[in-house]
Write a protein that binds this DNA or RNA. Structure first.
Lengths: 122, 122
DNA sequence: TCTACTGTACTATTACTCTAGTACAGTATG
DNA sequence: CATACTGTACTAGAGTAATAGTACAGTAGA
């Protein structure tokens, strides 16, 4: 049996950061909070945040300027969208469809979910 | 920020067991593998499997008969289906819809996923 | 230059899961 | 009764993630 690795806090923080970039809450060229700031805000250790930042540096969504902090890359939003879409379609979708079939839940339930959320946002 | 707990091996084994019950691979009244057997088969420690079994006992999907082993409860499949459906609709669906909206993926992609899997199963 | 920020690096400690090993009681069967 | 299975309980250890704390170098601005 294949076991899935647990998803560390530092990866969850990185996900949240990708989302902020995607939503343009953090826009291109902008400086993002320092490691220490974000650590305090999230109530985690600075080392953990540093690790999150490194994963985003690795996929070139942010870049460091020594002594100044981290800055959002120019093409970050587009890059994040492409990265996340691919990951969702490749990793999540098959698992979701499989589970839905197993539980007798049809695609129309997803559409209903969309409608519900539309009303909630309105 | 809220962090999701990592999903331990014992919970993943429990999930797999629920699925077997749902698929009637393990049918009502039937004896399931002993803790030691399953531990060997999965290559994990017996203590870990024992923990998995306990979670299924807690939701009354299986029951123990001392010295004999564990047996699938009479209404296990129905109970498992209800339990898993509710968990999916409550916990997973909102998250999925939210992510899809964020990534600009429409409900029709799910339908397409269903069709793909249908062809794969045929 | 001094101060207050930045990131980086490192060690030690805590907490938790899983592993490893042992021991013991209940049950069926010969 | 003897044997060979069951589950259960317990202790000890390894491995890993996250925490805690400290130290140090680069940068901006008064």
């Amino acid at each position: 049996m294949q076991f899935s690795e647990p998803k560390g806090i530092y990866l969850q923080i990185a996900d949240q950061m990708r989302e902020r970039i995607l939503r343009r809450e953090w826009s291109a060229g902008q400086r993002i909070p320092s490691i220490r700031e974000l650590a305090v805000e999230l109530g985690v250790n600075p080392n953990t945040v540093a690790r999150s930042y490194q994963t985003l540096v690795d996929s070139r969504l942010i870049a460091n300027r020594r002594g100044l902090g981290y800055f959002v890359a120019e093409d970050a939003a587009e890059r994040a969208l492409a990265e996340m879409r691919e990951a969702f379609l490749r990793d999540e979708m098959p698992r979701i469809v499989r589970t839905m079939r197993l539980l007798g839940i049809g695609p129309e339930e997803i559409s209903a979910g969309f409608s519900r959320q539309e009303r909630a946002n309105a």
